[in-house]
């Protein structure tokens, strides 16, 4: 019989995967906003804006879901992470605030070249800081350096050492490359302009290679930086086939981008990211914050977990169709190609 808290942990992992596939790609959009170059730089930016505008706020809610489930179901883990990782989380929050606000301010501020570019820069830089800090946080959680007294819940680690290290930052950059890859792949399908498609094809290839490099670096650093995870990733029965599968999908995705099979790439890149996060989740199990905190020793009581699971099920029944509808309205291939913001301006 699987314990209730494992279901909740599963929901959290799935939420994190969806957050990366949707919200992560929005951050990736910010990366490509910063690296918008060439004569089509303006068109690239505009395409990113149109792709993000209707959906980024809904995508962002997945992060709230993860946070809420964490503090409801695993309160001591939430308290420990909030204490030991106060600094990277605060930086991430500042990134979240600046990303979201700079994005809307850019749309509603005056449309002069300089103002627009100023908000673009802020939006882009915040879009880069946020996923790095999210990755640093996850890397630190995985590293096994946050020591907590299980009985009292007192964090015995200082406020710096668990995250200010090579491994968490490698995971931070790794996360950023995943976001950039997803964004570039999605963006190839957001436009009918073949030159723009080509721009994002090149970017997707660069990102895909960077993902490979960062995956390798993270794996090497994990020997020192996250020994428990490394053991999970390296020695378990499932690990070798799992790595092979992930690698195969990654190479297949690069091939699809190279061959301009964009629809296929849009399926493969998310699968690749899903496998990576899922693999981390499996390697992390049974620890929620290694080495001391496990899912079972931090779980809230059954009387708390049961109703939460019921809400999750009801929520899924309501949210998934609504989410699907949102995406069909704005991401369907048969959409009117006129840009949203243009429509928006003419509505004035």
């Amino acid at each position: 019989m699987i314990q209730l808290e494992i279901y909740i942990a599963g929901v959290m992992l799935v939420s994190l995967i969806i957050y990366m596939l949707t919200g992560g790609a929005d951050f990736g959009g910010g990366v490509w906003d910063l690296f918008a170059t060439g004569e089509r730089a303006k068109d690239q930016r505009e395409l990113i804006t149109h792709a993000l505008a209707p959906i980024w706020e809904a995508n962002h809610v997945w992060l709230i879901v993860i946070v809420v489930l964490l503090f409801v179901a695993f309160p001591v883990a939430f308290a420990s992470i909030g204490t030991a990782l106060h600094i990277p989380l605060t930086l991430m929050l500042i990134g979240i605030v600046l990303r979201g606000t700079a994005f809307v301010f850019r749309t509603y501020d005056d449309q002069s070249e300089t103002t627009h570019l100023r908000w673009s820069r802020l939006f882009a830089i915040a879009s880069i800081i946020t996923p790095i800090m999210l990755g640093v946080t996850l890397g630190a959680v995985a590293s096994g350096t946050i020591h907590v007294d299980v009985e009292t819940g007192i964090v015995e680690t200082d406020f710096i050492s668990s995250w200010f290290a090579l491994f968490p930052f490698a995971i931070g950059v790794f996360t950023l490359t995943l976001c950039a890859l997803l964004a570039a792949v999605y963006l190839t399908l957001e436009t009918d302009n073949s030159e723009l498609q080509e721009d994002f094809r090149i970017r997707a290839l660069v990102a895909a290679v960077s993902v490979g490099v960062m995956a390798g670096i993270s794996f090497l650093l994990s020997a020192e930086g996250a020994p428990t995870i490394r053991k999970g990733l390296g020695n378990s029965v499932w690990s070798v086939p799992f790595h092979l599968l992930t690698g195969a999908v990654a190479i297949w995705a690069i091939w699809a981008i190279w061959k301009r099979h964009y629809s296929l790439a849009r399926v493969l890149a998310p699968i690749q990211v899903t496998l990576i996060i899922f693999g981390w989740g499996l390697a992390q199990y049974p620890h929620i914050v290694s080495p001391n905190l496990t899912f079972s020793n931090t779980a809230a009581s059954k009387s708390v977990l049961q109703p939460v699971l019921i809400i999750v099920v009801i929520g899924a029944v309501i949210v998934i169709p609504a989410f699907w509808y949102l995406y069909t309205v704005f991401k369907g291939r048969d959409d009117q190609t006129g840009s949203l913001i243009e429509q928006d301006k003419t509505n004035n």
Partner: peptide, 15 residues
Amino acid sequence: SLEGLAFFIEAIFLG
């Protein structure tokens, strides 16, 4: 938890 659900509905339909 219910607030998370409500926020989802709000954000999706706002888009």
